[in-house]
Nucleic acid binder design. Structure first.
Lengths: 334, 334
DNA sequence: CTGAAAGCGCTAACAG
DNA sequence: CTGTTAGCGCTTTCAG
């Protein structure tokens, strides 16, 4: 491995000079700079980022902790975060927390030991905040996707309330009057906000809100399937279902199929998140999009700001969600 | 930030002693070790991995370059790689190459500058090998998913030939005699191997192989859709289609739906890869599974071996694929 | 068993 | 404009 010193020796200058040539410092002659740069090229010199970090006291590394990288929503976010971070001179160190609060803490500490300049967190759940307090105090951190309300942390989220209100209004405009909010988990802040949007829109429209709560831990396909299977047993009492997430909706689709319930003919179905699955032709789920690229950029920008100026106060950014109309909903005569 | 020196000062020992206490060196008294460890705990000392890397000349970081993290196949692999690497004491630095050979080179250099101990590559394509030769020579590298045949590199892949042969035999066993191999790209080694498996199985079964080549760059849904749309125009001349990948198969599904072709009643459909999409109830695609977790583990283990002993010769591991039976194929009377 | 000291590759004063 | 030098936080000889 060729180092600054090696180059300096060959060039016949001190290694500080080589350093200056590379850093684009102005305190150096144009001629020597060129000569040295060419030499570096020839000798195949690669700056050692570790050594640089050592003295600069910054690594230009952002830690990313994800509940599950293979989750399509999260992997999409991850992808955008990586690209945007890299464009800003940062590399990404990624860790799975595997939906485990203890592990989440563990990998956070690991990243701290690695001297990351900041961390972006796709948290296990709302509980992550308190569990991580001691750690987040030690390095700029931004949470993503979870609405932390007035907690003293940085976060970017979407306007869940507005998104669900818009979804409700859309169904209403199609003529639906009996709309079920399906799969709400009472322990999720996000779900609660979505519920509020739903209830508010129902109220404005003058229809009665009806909620089917989920007893499951996570909003998986499995959960959607099981909850829907139970629902279908007792007969279909609604013309439309508003699912708390896309995964749930896909589970509902399966149950509907097995019970001979045609979507959208017998039942209109909406999801929330717009995961990539939702766009697949055989699924083609009408849903509410979380603007992943914008969220990723916002999180990275917010983090970098705070890395550059750690004294900045906590902040958050609430992005507007977007209705994505596909074929799982149809108009009915009311 | 509290350092070794700080701890040493409080403990009233030299900082070498603290270092020894932490490293579990045997050259230290049991009593002092305990005292120091406790002190470290109390003072909230976190070892600085950067400084350690500096002197150890190893970072315990594995670089991972992925063509596209949001691709479900790759994100699943990534997830397993991260977990397995971490269990072995390595963290993961992840970069997207965005299916761009130039960028792939660029991020590889970046990782070299970061002094990663090794890199795992989910390459853009078969061309990545030659384009990256100079870089891969500088650090232990293992390719994953692409079959590099006799090239002097480390890689893990699956037995594409056998997988496709098994798929063909399965269709044959269901009574299919007119089986189309759909979407083969002639520039892909992987596709060529799959083709060979198909042809070989056809030969053994005594049926005529028929291939529809793809003119598209990538095996996307879009490509499958367009290719299938053209195929359906001219009438359906086969009872089963063996797609070169799951993405293609999903595109075919869409085209089939639009053309009123019922799957599997009119046409049996098989994919290859077993991406997570394939398992979704509305899709439920019969396919050939690439064992992602095993591949990830194999790649990590292979890399770590080579990190520990850089003189090891190049090697590769070919894993057996597995038939996944779902509902997109049906038996026909032959 | 413990301390002193060198040095990993680089940046950033500080001198000249 | 260029050279000298002092570290960054840690591990590891080498002496005691």
């Amino acid at each position: 491995m060729v180092t600054l010193k090696d180059v300096a020796k060959v060039a016949g200058v001190s290694y500080a000079t080589v350093s200056r040539a590379l850093s684009g410092s102005s305190e150096i002659g144009e001629q020597t700079r060129k000569r040295i740069l060419k030499l570096c090229e020839e000798m195949g010199y690669t700056p050692n980022a570790v050594a640089r970090s050592m003295v600069m006291k910054r690594t230009n590394i952002i830690g990313l902790i994800v509940a599950s990288i293979e989750n399509p929503f999260m992997s999409e976010l991850t992808s955008h975060i990586e690209i945007h971070a890299r464009h800003n001179g940062y590399n990404l160190m990624v860790c799975n927390s595997s939906y485990d609060t203890e592990l989440e803490k563990e990998v956070f500490s690991l990243l701290l030991g690695r001297q990351v300049d900041g961390v972006i967190l796709l948290p296990v759940g709302s509980g992550s905040y308190s569990s991580l307090q001691q750690l987040t105090a030690q390095v700029p951190t931004v949470f993503i996707s979870e609405n932390l309300q007035d907690l003293p942390e940085n976060y970017v989220a979407i306007d869940n309330r507005q998104g669900m209100a818009a979804a409700t209004e859309y169904l209403y405009s199609l003529g639906h009057r009996r709309i079920l909010y399906f799969g709400c988990r009472s322990n999720s802040v996000t779900h609660r906000l979505r519920l509020e949007g739903y209830e508010q829109a129902c109220k404005s429209a003058g229809i009665a809100p009806e909620v089917l709560y989920s007893p499951f831990e996570r909003s998986s396909q499995e959960a959607g399937y099981r909850l829907a299977a139970g629902y279908f047993q007792d007969g279909i009492r609604h013309t439309a279902m508003l699912c708390a997430s896309d995964s749930l909706a896909i589970g509902v689709m399966q149950a509907a199929y097995e019970n001979g319930v045609s979507i959208p003919n017998r039942l209109s179905l909406m999801g929330f998140d717009n995961i990539s699955f939702a766009a697949l032709p055989p699924i083609d789920l009408t849903t509410v999009d979380q603007p992943k690229e914008r969220m990723a950029k916002a999180a990275v920008d917010m983090l970098i700001e705070r890395i550059k100026n750690p004294d900045l106060p906590h902040t958050h950014e609430i992005l507007p969600p977007l209705l994505v109309l596909r074929s799982s909903c149809r108009a009915v005569r009311s």
